[in-house]
Design a binder for these strands. Structure first.
Length: 278
DNA sequence: CAAACTCCCTGTTAGC
DNA sequence: TGCTAACAGGGAGTTT
């Protein structure tokens, strides 16, 4: 599933291919993929706009669109890939998949296709990005995100640390894969209670989150052999490896459920300290 | 305030 | 072999 590193990879891929492109046709094949405005409006409003930039905020792709006539400010096309979404940029002659939910035809002769077999992904067209991403927490790779920032966030509530990492209003962009990976790297148990984690351990968690995300971006995301979304070559240390051995201590990796999500961790590397139990 | 649950979806897989 | 049912999973919304 696309999380921050996969979305970043997709944003870079898109940026190279569609920056400057004029959109001259839009079709929505699965109306519920489009949150706002209504699909007909969506098609009408986007047609004729130019893609100025492609970026990312949390797990959202952010395309800045502008009108050629310049009579109004920029607008934004946001795409959340959720579970199974992906983006293709192909020639129109490439046969369209039945899972291509939204297609933008570009003047350059290419098509930008939002492909999403499970239909959980969402597209937004807005004038104000904050309308969509306003509630997101800080970007973990932003220099402004320090150990102190993380400390304030974790100490302000009492909950399982994994649940806090998954909460997009706490930190943006971390999902099930990188939450498990960062906790493993930090040698922190997923059920450790946030406001009882020492500052020293929070500092380790902070650098673990950043190292894990940076490493995954360098590798262009996780190689999830899932077949649904093919990304890069990041190999998870614990995620999806329950029953296999920990690469650090060779204990058998355990699987539990935290915040309704499957959670893998090493029971030996990631001990739950007495002081951090509920 | 936080946690738990429900819903949206379909490809994959386990069970029969 | 072929069928069905269970399951996974991000996040918004609702209930506890």
């Amino acid at each position: 599933m696309p999380e921050l590193p996969e979305v970043e990879t997709t944003a870079r891929f898109l940026s190279e291919r569609v920056c400057g492109a004029l959109i001259d046709g839009v079709s929505v094949h699965w109306p519920r993929s489009v949150v706002c405005p209504a699909p007909q409006q969506f098609e009408r409003l986007i047609c004729g706009l130019r893609i100025e930039a492609v970026g990312r905020r949390g797990k959202f792709l952010v395309l800045t669109l502008s009108s050629c006539a310049e009579e109004r400010g920029p607008c934004y096309l946001l795409i959340h890939l959720r579970m199974s979404g992906s983006i293709d940029v192909v020639r129109p002659s490439v046969p369209r998949s039945k899972h291509d939910q939204v297609v933008l035809r570009l003047e350059s002769g290419k098509e930008l296709r939002f492909h999403d077999p499970r239909k959980f992904g969402r597209v937004y067209f807005v004038e104000d990005v904050q309308q969509v991403v306003g509630k997101l927490g800080p970007e973990p790779l932003d220099p402004a995100f320090t150990s102190g920032t993380l400390s304030l966030l974790l100490k302000s509530s009492r909950r399982a640390v994994k649940s806090a990492l998954l909460d997009q209003s706490t930190i943006a962009g971390i999902g099930n894969i990188y939450a498990d990976e960062a906790l493993w790297r930090a040698r922190l148990h997923p059920l450790a209670i946030t406001n009882r984690i020492s500052s020293a351990k929070i500092s380790v968690l902070h650098s673990s989150i950043r190292r894990t995300l940076r490493e995954a971006i360098l590798r262009q995301g996780t190689d999830n052999g899932d077949g649904v979304v093919e990304f890069g070559s990041y190999r998870p240390r614990v995620y999806g490896r329950a029953g296999k051995r920990c690469g650090r201590c060779s204990s058998v990796i355990k699987r539990i459920v935290v915040a309704q999500r499957g959670t893998s961790f090493c029971p030996r590397c990631q001990r739950l300290p007495l002081s951090a139990r509920r």
